[in-house]
Design a protein around this nucleic acid. Sequence first.
RNA 1: GCGGGCGUAGCUCAAUGGUAGAGCGCUAGUCUUCCAAACUAGUUACGAGGGUUCGAUUCCCUUCGCCCGCUCCA
Length: 539
Amino acid sequence: MADPKENVQMEKIVSLCKRRGFIFQSSEIYGGINGFWDYGPLGAELKRNVKELWWHAMTRQREDVVGLEATIIMSPAIWKASGHVDTFSDPMIDCKTCKGRFRADQTDEIPCPQKPSKCVNDCHGEKTAPRAFNLMFQTFVGPVQDDSAIAYLRPETAQAIFAQFKNVLETSRQKVPFGIAQTGKAFRNEVTPRNYTFRSREFEQMELEFFIKPDEAVEAIHGSVASVPTTGHPGEPQSNWGWQAWHQYWVEERVRFYEGIGLNRTTLAFHRQTPEELAHYARACVDILFKFPFSKRDEQGELKGEELEGIAARSDFDLSQHARFSGKPMGVFDDELRAAWGKLPKEKSDDLWRRYYDNRKRYLEKSGVAPEAAAKQATEDANGLAKGQYVPHVIEPSAGVDRLILALIANAYSETSKTDEKGKTETNVVLRFHPRVAPIKVGVLPLLKNKPELVAKALAVRDLLRPWMNVYYDDGGSIGRRYARQDEAGTPFCVTIDFDSLGEKPELLNTVTIRHRDDGRQERVAISDLVNWLLPQIR
RNA sequence: GCGGGCGUAGCUCAAUGGUAGAGCGCUAGUCUUCCAAACUAGUUACGAGGGUUCGAUUCCCUUCGCCCGCUCCA
């Protein structure tokens, strides 16, 4: 943590989350378990709202994205193909003398921190035996616990989408470009869970794999690939978009989503990965960061932010891997491409053929295929392109739900101070959630508890609203106390039933007060208009 | 996993080798005509296990968890 003040801010948030029932430590009564967190009543509502908004925006509101709900345990072959079995398991050696940690396969290359003239292998430090640091949780499928039964809890939801790509394509009546969206749990046995729920061992993802034509196919069909500005939203998708346009599009779509739930651009930061940071198969990756209180600061003292979501342009790597490992074709056939290819001038088709060939060959060689075999396969692939066949490329917006929840809470957290006549200052916490994500949409409160007519009317209003939104009825303590309770829960609106609602002023019969969380403003609304007044604000 | 700090009600904080206390919160009741009013009653803790001791929340060990460094990127 950069600064004690920010530490305090984070501690307040943690304390509030427990006090109000947003987040609890998992297995707390048994002393807890590191890296696992539960959501209490308010947290469960908040999280559900966020996931539903994502699902709504990503699938139901779109023509070109469909959903998937895959299992958490899959064939271990999937994780071989994806690279997780290999890259997620570096054997490590700790040196008890110098406290260093080294990859076991590099101890004869890395110099000893204390005696740089010698490598780690030859220095005098006492080393532990090599230990595999596999970030995947292992389990066994079936009753026999031998190596043949080993399976893994998925470390990301994405791979199921690739593995089911063909099934979805064939059953959904979609054509490239289109996407497959999925939310769900993922598991990583992190070395060090950190920063409250930010890095957990069990967490939930919201991932879209959006499949697009390779640029060579777009160019063959449209003559050229559209260029779009590198900043700002490029507008409605166009058929001549290549991967860059689609990537830019999804970055901006995702920012719109965050803005729509109360995280405006100033709370976010962006990181465009450098060529050194990118995985070898990736063309680009933009991270969307949120400036958490625990974030580190840059040289200018600005919060750098922590990653909420990465939008990666992953080329055709994923589907190609699964095609190679499963032996099942992952390519698609494109009528339009086939028709267009025949009309290309030879110069053009040769150029496209060569570029596609080069890309395929580079991928195959990077994947360890022998040069000769790679050249042969790449030739086949490029010939396939000329007949209308290709392996789709993918743009992957991949977000962490739990990180977003924490960001929403941190963003909403605010304190207001009031000093009463006696000079007593009181600090109140207000969670300024966007109404769309707020766990409770409306608090229904009779002005007084000991007047049966008020209570009866308030209960009637509660029952009127309940089918439409999450309501909370409260008649405990004074009205001010109840407002304060709802402020802490982040409830955007409170409806108060008073004597005018009962007709004390006849013209106000069957009206109620709506009190706004953020400024305390009140307005009078007829009970019969309540649903129509509230719904547009919470959707 | 390694090193450093920490662990007392739901929260914030006391005290002690000999019965653990306050404020706030929460629950119930009285009262209350719009922003944590008052009164009454109730509620809950020494992270877990072992040891030293007549007796441990206090001293020692182990373990679990939290925070800070090394790792990581949803």
